[in-house]
Amino acid sequence: MRSPKQEVFKADHTTMSEPPPLPGQQINDGKGRIFPCEQCGADLKFHIGEQSLKCPFCGAKRELSFSENAEIREQNFEEMVAELKRRKSEQEHEDPEHQEVRCESCGTDVIFDGTLTSIDCPYCGSPLQREKIHTGGFRVNVDAVMPFQIDPRQAQGKIAAWVQSLWFAPNDFKKIGAKGKCNGVYLPFWTFDTLTFTVYHGERGEDYTTTVGTGDKKRTVTRTRWYTATGKFQRFFDDVLINATGKFSKTDLEELGPWPLDSLLPFTQEVIAGHFARTYDVELEDALPIAKQIIDAAIRSECRGRIGGDRQRVHSVKTRYDAVTYKHCLLPIYMLAYRYKGKSFRVFVNGASGTVRGERPFSWVKISAAVLSALAVVITGLALFSR
Rank of each mutant, 00 (worst) to 15 (best):
Q26V: 06
S368A: 15
G274I: 06
A352T: 10
A244T: 13
G358E: 05
T211V: 15
G205F: 10
D12P: 08
R219N: 10
G107M: 02
E285F: 11
D12I: 02
D238I: 01
G136C: 10
V142N: 05
E7H: 04
K88S: 13
Y280F: 15
I27S: 00
E283K: 14
S65G: 00
V199M: 05
Q39K: 14
P20C: 00
Q129H: 07
Y123Q: 11
Y186R: 07
D207K: 14
E71S: 14
R304S: 14
Y338W: 05
S363F: 11
Y334M: 06
F345S: 00
V271R: 11
L22T: 13
I242L: 08
T14A: 11
P289Q: 09
F237M: 08
D172N: 12
I34W: 03
T196G: 09
L22Q: 13
D262I: 05
K341M: 04
N350Q: 02
R87D: 01
E94V: 11
K318C: 00
N28K: 05
V8I: 11
T198Y: 05
S263C: 03
V314C: 09
A42H: 15
V142L: 08
L166D: 09
E79T: 09
E7V: 10
P289M: 09
K158T: 01
L241Y: 12
E104H: 04
R62L: 08
V145G: 06
L331G: 08
V378P: 04
Y338E: 00
L375F: 15
I111Y: 00
K88P: 01
L331H: 07
N243G: 07
M146A: 02
A11N: 08
F138E: 14
R311L: 12
I119D: 02
P127L: 03
S126D: 11
R360Y: 15
R339K: 12
I27K: 02
P4E: 08
E90N: 01
D322Y: 15
R33E: 02
G309Q: 06
F189V: 14
A229D: 07
L253Q: 07
T209K: 15
R339C: 00
A298L: 14
G358H: 06
Y200R: 03
R300M: 11
K158H: 12
